[in-house]
Computed example of a mutant assay.
Amino acid sequence: MKVAVYTIALNEAVHVERWAESAAEADYRIVADTGSTDDTIERLSNAGVTVHRIAVRPWRFDDARNAAMALIPPDVDVCCTMDMDMFLERGWRSKLESAWKAETTALYCRMVIRSSFDDPNPIRAYPSKSFHSRWGYRFRRPIHEALFFSGEEIPSNTDQIVMHHLRHNETNHEKYLRLMELALAEDPHDSQICFWLGREHMYKNQTEQSVELLERYLKLPTSKWTDERSEAMRYLARMVPEQRASWLDRARIEAPHRREIWLDLAEEFHSRADWLNLFWAASNGIENARRTGSYLDDPSCWGFRLHDLGAIASWHLNAMDRAVEWARKALELDQNNQRLKNNLNFFVGRREEMRLQK
């Protein structure tokens, strides 16, 4: 098996050495530079990476990545697409050779999102189609580009190969917005682009456009992923406050396994002082929800807040054993929170008072 790691680059000097070292187990390391003005090219060459200068006009991510893929030698069996701000954990080559079967066309590895190299704590993790066969694949979409296979795709998955992505916030939202609008114009039935474009408008506080796109997304026949559909409903609940309860309930029906929805519902019931429904939402979110492993998982929803709200509801319902249990768990998850400490002490005292009154 011959393996090539490839990508595109533009002013990525700060990432070069780490990227090149992590890809060193490959037979080929190939970078298509799209016009760097720093010393990216020099650093890549010094690291033994094959660098090609390319120009893509007008700019599209799919055209750039397809150009890079075309530069991979024909004797390669497996390709790894890895951006410059990503890196593979050591030992990935042997794990790839074990996981890749004769019939495999693509392999999903574990993608771990981190805020920086110095901070090992993951923001989130999800499966990523980072390995694919040399022939039959092309990138599509001018942005949020994805790999598509010309025949019957036979994917596989492994958690043994881990790729880290050092996420940064330096995004040209205006440029990305134009490219997403182009992507949706090229394929009006692309539900994922419709979702992402609606989300981008929400980020820019362009509520009318966002609501229109997200409602359109929910009506598309290609909109079938329940986790993503429920996320669109959560966004609509935020932007259309008079329909908040309705959208959150629809999101719950769509994806009852997502804690994010139960926390949103819990906050809504807490704002209304609806203690019975708050207890119901907290119970379901704590006991029945799970992480999905997708990019939609919100780590903050797995913090103290749902237990905190559940404890408050339990107190109001005089379910003091449960109030104490959840208050303790909330404090475990945020040990320096003085309010949580005060709440726990109060609940313990209240439980003791109720026992003495019996």
Rank of each mutant, 00 (worst) to 15 (best):
Y6A: 02
L340F: 03
D77W: 03
M163S: 13
T81M: 09
V16K: 07
F195Q: 02
A327I: 04
D249E: 14
R234M: 09
L44P: 00
E332D: 13
V211Q: 06
R93Q: 04
S150P: 00
G285L: 07
L296E: 08
D118M: 07
N157Y: 15
Y137K: 02
T207G: 01
T40K: 06
M180F: 13
A232E: 04
H316F: 11
E145F: 02
C80W: 00
S294V: 01
V14R: 15
A24I: 05
R65M: 09
D39S: 12
E97V: 11
H164R: 08
P256Y: 09
E254S: 13
L179M: 15
A311L: 03
S98T: 12
Y295T: 09
R124G: 01
A232F: 11
A68I: 02
A232V: 03
N345F: 00
E267Q: 14
R140M: 04
L276G: 07
T105R: 04
L265W: 00
N46H: 12
V348W: 00
R291C: 03
Q335M: 04
P120M: 06
L213C: 08
S150W: 06
A146F: 04
N277R: 15
V324S: 08
R258L: 14
N284D: 10
D308A: 08
C109V: 11
D119T: 12
Q192G: 00
S94Q: 13
D187M: 02
F304P: 11
R93V: 01
H168C: 04
E21R: 15
A273F: 02
Q209R: 15
N277W: 01
R234W: 00
R216C: 04
T7K: 01
G151E: 11
T7Y: 02
V324P: 14
D334R: 12
R110M: 07
A20R: 06
N205F: 10
L333F: 01
F61C: 06
S36N: 07
T292M: 08
